[in-house]
Design a protein around this nucleic acid. Structure first.
Lengths: 190, 190
DNA sequence: AAGGGCCGCGGCAATTTGCCGCATATTCCA
DNA sequence: TGGAATATGCGGCAAATTGCCGCGGCCCTT
């Protein structure tokens, strides 16, 4: 479909250099390996400070940032990475898809937003979509979502607002914690 | 820190002028009245063309745009309103919350994104949040409707979309007609 | 070490839903 | 004007979901 995967816009930085930021070493390394296999120059970081140190040393062309980290949030990182290097493409990952956090991320300069779990292919696809020109918002068909879909969206939005705290989310939603757990075990309806 | 929460940025346009765009006359007029009561100079439109005509005549300081309309989508409108008047604050409404549409809206220049149903207070709050400085991605403390409440609202919105046709609404919602009937017999949850 | 909060999960009983059928409008069209 | 299609309300019953209990585990603060 979109034919532009090969050329990312940069200046002095290497085209296929990417910075992966996630507090989970396992996740980060798995992703790092997948990107290296695809020919990327990968560097990783586990929090805001590490990421900024790495980025200052040499600005990466792309970055993948998890929202939830110890220390300053991924949102801060998005903002400061872009201040450091305005051409950087930043993809934000979040364990739970919340509209408000997605909006914040995009406002702060994120190229796109992806709910976890996401693998390297998902991420690359999201980069491509993000760089795609949105100037033609043609066929965004606003179909009515099913009740189940709407419920799912609402639940996950609230859960995100609660920082992933299930007990708190259940309280706000006015349902039993056990019921929320059970609902969360189901996948997103389509 | 950008200091601009209280005073909306404009040029020749009146500060408290707002353009409401929604294809539902009832919704639009209800909202219009609420905004007039709050001292806004309100103009309304039912689709892309009307909205652009009104806006060209005199650019509003703010706009509320429903995503779903006959003709060009609200996303097109967001984009073109901003091209017309770069200082305009545009709030996008959508019948439901989808992350990707929210992201598209913000990319195209929307100030914020709000899932329907939303009243004037919700909208004003969203404008303020949207104009607020996001450089400190700290707290977002929004109200949280209960699951039952959210479900009720979604059901009634879809039912309205179907012109009160219960069978059709049940189909769109993906639930059994009998179940819809039973849900409709219950009152709005608090 | 104790208290408190959160998590995941098993196991009911109570409630809700899906799905059937049936009788009755309403609409549209040949 | 008769028939086909569709909508509505409702009873009933099996299946699924939810509310609610309790348990042990984990992590943090006191």
């Amino acid at each position: 479909m979109i034919e532009q995967a090969a050329n990312y816009p940069h200046d002095s930085t290497e085209r296929r250099s990417i910075l992966l930021v996630d507090d989970s070493v396992a996740f980060r390394e798995r992703l790092a390996r997948a990107f290296r296999d695809r020919g990327f120059a990968v560097r990783t970081a586990g929090n805001y400070d590490e990421a900024m140190t790495v980025a200052r040393e040499r600005a990466p062309a792309m970055a993948v940032v998890d929202l939830r980290m110890p220390g300053p949030s991924g949102l801060n990182l998005v903002k400061d990475l872009r201040e450091l290097h305005s051409e950087i493409q930043v993809l934000v990952l979040s364990g739970f898809g919340s509209i408000s956090t997605a909006i914040d991320a995009v406002r702060l300069g994120a190229t796109n937003f992806l709910p976890k779990p996401a693998d390297a292919d998902d991420i690359l696809a999201a980069f491509e979509r993000g760089e795609a020109d949105v100037s033609d918002p043609a066929e965004t068909e606003p179909e009515t979502p099913s009740l189940a879909r709407a419920e799912w969206e609402h639940i996950h939005r609230v859960l995100a607002d609660c920082g992933g705290n299930i007990s708190e989310a259940a309280r706000r939603l006015g349902i039993h914690r056990r019921s929320l757990q059970r609902k969360l075990q189901k996948r997103a309806p389509e």
